[in-house]
């Protein structure tokens, strides 16, 4: 089934943006560049999409592979620790209190992601997008059991990193 580029972007642009920010947590400008690069690659590869993989998995593959090569071309010096501010600007704020709590949690989450090695940052971003183990294994080209061990470790690591901050609040 042919997929239009506009529809593809409309359905995935938030997701792609979050992956970029997770992968390049110290450099929002580079994350924006990476996002644009992902769009170019999606656009270039889309005519070759034959539906062998689920569209969501296919988009993740292009996004992850673009990120792998992007960092190599754009070696950047990290800037100051960034927060989720530019993404959180448009968070649906039911109440001020709820919005503040969510912002704090997201800040902490971004901080914890930034502490991870680059490969793990990509994996965590896929996990946080609710990609299944099967999907992530297909994206990486590894077995589900291999991926599962690593993802379970990452989940625990993330939960342990975020929990103390939550308790402090």
């Amino acid at each position: 089934m042919p997929v239009s580029f506009d529809e593809l972007v409309a359905a995935n642009h938030n997701r792609l943006h979050r992956i970029c920010r997770a992968y390049l947590p110290h450099d929002p400008a580079a994350a924006q560049d990476l996002y644009q690069e992902m769009l170019v690659q999606l656009w270039t590869c889309l005519p070759g999409y034959r539906g062998e993989a689920q569209l969501g998995t296919w988009v993740y593959r292009v996004a992850v592979n673009t990120a792998l090569l992007f960092q190599r071309r754009e070696q950047r010096q990290p800037t100051a620790r960034s927060t989720s501010f530019d993404l959180a600007e448009s968070l649906p704020a039911e109440t001020d209190e709820a919005a503040r709590a969510l912002n704090t949690l997201l800040d902490q989450l971004h901080h914890c992601i930034a502490l991870l090695p680059d490969a793990d940052r990509l994996l965590v971003s896929l996990l946080l997008e609710d990609a299944s183990y099967q999907q992530i294994a297909e994206v990486l080209g590894l077995s589900v059991s291999n991926v599962g061990v690593r993802l379970n470790r990452l989940k625990k690591k993330m939960a342990a990193c975020v929990a103390p901050a939550r308790l402090a609040d």
């Binding site: 506009d6 972007v9 409309a10 642009h13 938030n14 792609l16 943006h17 979050r18 924006q32 996002y35 769009l39 989720s84 530019d86 993404l87 959180a88 600007e89 448009s90 968070l91 649906p92 969510l102 949690l105 997201l106 989450l109 996990l127 946080l128 997008e129 609710d130 989940k155 993330m158 939960a159 975020v162 929990a163 939550r166």
Partner: peptide, 23 residues
């Protein structure tokens, strides 16, 4: 901390509107 809660919070973030390319 429940990981699903982290996922829900994470997915509430939306990209700035300006980053969507238009024809």
């Amino acid at each position: 901390m429940d990981f699903q809660e982290l996922q829900r919070s994470w997915q509430q973030q939306t990209a700035p509107a300006a980053s969507t390319p238009e024809v």
